[in-house]
Amino acid sequence: MPTALITGITGQDGLYLAELLLEKGYEVHGVIRGQNNPRRELVERLVPDVKLHNGDLTDLSSLMRALRDSEPDEVYNLGAVSFVAYSWENAFVTSDVTGLGVLNILEAVRLHAGSDPASIRFYQASSSEMFGKVQQVPQSEETLLWPRSPYGVSKVYGHYMTINYRESYGMHASSGILFNHESPRRGEEFVTRKVSKAVAAIKLGMQDEIVMGNLDARRDWGFAGDYVEAMWRMLQQPTADDYVISTGETHSIEELLTVAFGHVGISDWRKHVRQDPAFMRPAEVDLLIGDASKARDVLGWKPQVGFEELITMMVDADLAALKAGW
């Protein structure tokens, strides 16, 4: 039975990945920050077979303990301060966790592996936000990185540190440059979930409007449940490498609103949407669209859930949750 250790187990990706690995017969361990983490109960309910370890990406000793207690064959580093807007408000914390945290987990894996650094396969969650002020459309593994937020800068640091450990120590360390991926488990601070929950509430008469920022920004949105399959496939390859994971389609915030409101029978969504400059980014990333041909050719991976199916899935989940009083 292979064993995997996941940081960021409380996030949408961590939960979907844990489910996938359990289905594949893995023994799954998760690192969770703080004994009183409010999301611990959610993890224990959704994936009760996962063994949890207290730890923090900013604390090397806690990561070493988690590795010692789990003895993993694979490590998936999904932990991060991942909300882009927050990264401007607290660039230091974002850099400490999302950037230096990668160095900590890489070093912990290297030390734990000892004389055989490739014996533990490592996955780093890189991000399309690293492309920022895009220099090429679509973006591939070879596109120049030009991040436009403290979050994006931190992800670039972790991405290159993963490459450095692979080249310097011979670690089997791969990075997935994942474009935006969403699900009903997405945090409510992210725009897709903000929209899906607000649309559900408006449909049920629980609120009247939603306040948004830039409606013209375009993103390449996929389903998180599809994307964790790509993570696993990367670590099954004989050689570690970096892969863009995306749908290859781009959609605007306006399109997101049109699909979400249309799904509940509201055709004129503009009377329910108010723009506020407070929700604009200091430096906007206007167009992200990925070229996942390498993942398709090498990993045999392609997305299964389309944009409209994804958004309607999220709206339906929020409608059900609100009706149930969650």
Rank of each mutant, 00 (worst) to 15 (best):
D226I: 09
Q236S: 15
G187T: 01
K203C: 11
A198L: 03
L235N: 11
A201W: 04
R185H: 05
S174M: 09
Q237A: 10
Q236L: 15
T192Y: 06
Q207S: 05
R218Y: 09
N180T: 13
K203M: 07
S196A: 15
L178T: 10
E182C: 09
P184K: 02
D220F: 06
M212W: 03
E182G: 00
K203H: 13
N214G: 04
R193A: 13
G176H: 02
A230T: 06
G225E: 14
G176Y: 05
D208S: 11
T239D: 14
P238Q: 14
S174A: 11
G222D: 07
M231C: 13
A217I: 13
G187L: 02
W221F: 15
N214H: 11
F223T: 09
V228Q: 10
A217L: 13
F179S: 01
L204Y: 07
A224I: 03
G222L: 04
R233M: 15
R218G: 05
E189N: 03
R219T: 07
D226W: 07
F190K: 06
A201N: 02
T239I: 14
S196V: 12
F223E: 12
T192V: 12
I202W: 00
Y227I: 06
E188N: 04
S196E: 08
G213I: 01
F223V: 09
I177G: 03
G176C: 05
G176D: 04
V191E: 04
A198I: 00
E229Q: 12
V211M: 03
E188P: 01
L178H: 08
R218N: 09
A200G: 11
I202T: 05
M231A: 14
L204R: 07
R193K: 13
P238S: 14
Q236Y: 11
W221C: 04
Q236W: 12
D226K: 06
L215M: 13
E209T: 10
G225V: 09
I202Q: 01
P184N: 03
L215G: 00
L178P: 06
V199T: 05
L178A: 08
I210Q: 00
M212R: 00
G205T: 09
G225D: 12
T239G: 08
P238W: 13
I177H: 06
V199C: 07
D216Q: 13
I210G: 01
G213N: 03
K197L: 08
G176R: 02
D241C: 14
F190L: 11
Q237W: 04
K203G: 12
S183A: 15
H172S: 08
W221L: 14
M212P: 00
M231P: 05
K197V: 12
D220A: 07
V195I: 15
S183V: 13
G187Y: 00
V191I: 15
D226F: 09
N214A: 12
R218F: 10
P238D: 15
R186Y: 10
P184T: 00
V211C: 00
D216R: 14
H172D: 08
G205S: 06
V228C: 10
M234N: 11
T192L: 05
V228A: 10
E209A: 07
D226Y: 07
H181I: 03
S196R: 05
